[in-house]
């Protein structure tokens, strides 16, 4: 992998995202997370101003102002972007609060990456109000005005609580029950109960269980398989590596760069990393590497931010030299996760 080329690519993206990304403006913090975490993995964070990043991220946080009632049904986290952020009215009352769980996860992840001490984040109302998003079945809605509920937001909620080291925002038992309901007959996890097993859903399930402390590191060696069907899961996960060396997200689908992370990270968390044919995976990923930096979804296509990021994380899991190692369950580097 051409590390310098990718660092330059990530730095260019940091300074200006091309116009096609405007259609994802609502997830601006997620786009920023991809860029900034890429720089960190590539050991190139020294190219950017960390304080400016921290201040920018913090400016998306919703402050309800006067003592807001955490039981009013709203969630007070981070806005995803500027278009959804509105100034308070003349009396200082916030009329439009569109805080989002994924944006909140990305905000906190970026803050950790740039070394901001999360104990300085006003998180009391954030955590208390997060409970408003958890549904009776244990799943999470991403935003209080309504939205699809699935494993992605269970993961976001778990990662937020883990990073803040405070679990008051989540009913862990309920969240666990929801996750277990998403395990399919074939061993993988769908995004919602009944849905087809999916690499991304399986990552959210396993990473969440790990963050919530329901499964230990190296689950295989500890033999604690009472919670989920580990042998069936492992069979499903291992078989996601295709003939071309890449990983697919579902059986009988094409291999795709991003699943090298979603599936690779699950194997890592399960302590089953040695089931991967690393050489073949590396070969596949290199066919998706773009000559001017970044990675594409499929071989020989143009790169995008999302697949580039998961290409870098995949190479980090492959222990590519010069890359920082990854905290698989948080989706940031080990150094960022540990606050070093």
């Amino acid at each position: 992998m051409d590390k310098d080329l990718h660092s330059t690519f990530a730095e260019l993206m940091f300074h200006l995202l091309p116009s096609p990304y405007e259609s994802q403006e609502i997830n601006h913090l997620t786009l920023a997370y991809f860029v900034i975490s890429s720089l960190d993995i590539l050991n190139s964070l020294n190219r950017v101003e960390k304080d400016a990043i921290a201040n920018w991220v913090l400016s998306f946080q919703v402050h309800p102002g006067t003592k807001a009632d955490p039981n009013n049904g709203q969630f007070y986290g981070f806005h995803g972007s500027r278009t959804s952020q509105f100034p308070p009215d003349d009396n200082g009352v916030l009329l439009h609060n569109h805080s989002h769980l994924a944006s909140t996860y990305c905000a906190l992840a970026i803050l950790k990456i740039v070394g901001y001490d999360l104990s300085n984040v006003d998180s009391e109302i954030m955590l208390a109000s997060m409970r408003n998003l958890q549904q009776p079945d244990g799943s999470f809605m991403p935003i209080h005005i309504g939205g699809e509920t699935d494993l992605r937001f269970v993961y976001c909620a778990a990662a937020i609580c883990f990073m803040l080291d405070n679990w008051s925002g989540v009913d862990k038992e309920k969240a666990k029950d929801y996750i277990l309901n998403c395990q399919s007959y074939d061993g993988g996890f769908g995004l919602v109960p009944g849905a087809e097993s999916h690499g991304g859903g399986t990552y959210c399930a396993i990473a969440s269980l790990r963050l919530m402390g329901f499964i230990d590191d190296n689950l295989l060696s500890s033999c604690d398989s009472s919670l989920i069907n580990v042998p069936l899961l492992l069979e499903w996960v291992v078989q996601r590596q295709g003939m071309d060396g890449g990983f697919q997200g579902r059986p009988n689908k094409a291999t795709d760069t991003c699943y090298a992370f979603w599936i690779g990270a699950v194997l890592k968390i399960l302590g089953a990393g040695n089931f991967v044919d690393n050489k073949a995976l590396r070969r596949f990923l290199l066919t998706c590497q773009y000559k001017y930096g970044g990675f594409s979804k499929f071989p020989g296509e143009f790169p995008d931010l999302y697949h580039s990021y998961y290409g870098f994380t995949a190479f980090s899991l492959l222990e590519e030299s010069g890359l920082k190692s990854l905290c698989s369950e948080l989706g940031i580097t080990e150094t960022a996760a540990k606050g070093l």
Binding site: M13, F14, L16, L17, S19, E22, W56
Partner: peptide
């Protein structure tokens, strides 16, 4: 704000 980060070319 004064210092936009990861700006998008709208």
């Amino acid at each position: 704000g004064p210092t936009p980060v990861v700006p998008i070319k709208y």
